[in-house]
Amino acid sequence: MFLINCPYCGEREQVEFNCGGEAHIVRPKNPPDLSDDQWADYLFMRKNIKGVQFERWNHSNGCRRWFNVVRNTATDEILKIYNMGETAPNINGDDPKTPSGEPNIGSGNISSTFEKK
């Protein structure tokens, strides 16, 4: 549970909101020209980053408005909230802080973090 600062209603609990998945996915201009793989990529493939992610959220039990959120999925820290239609802010997603200092790409992976050590 965390607080989200709705652009209209102010700070509210997360239970009032729904996450609408990744933001800034643009519908291809010429769908008939795409291959099945490209179309499936547009429809289904979403990033699932442990770290800074750009998401769409809806204040479903409040003003029912959509807006964009930049959230660190490891710590639920909200870095920025901006309106629909705005361009993505330039927020550096490198090395997000994790609660107990574990590597940010998952402890099961052999990562550059381990190799450095």
């Binding site: 209603c9 102010g10 509210r12 239970v15 009032e16 039990n61 409040g62 003003c63």
Partner: peptide
């Protein structure tokens, strides 16, 4: 969220 008279809030 309900600080003064004539305020309202939608919630759960």
């Amino acid at each position: 969220n309900l600080p003064t008279k004539s305020t309202c809030a939608q919630t759960l």
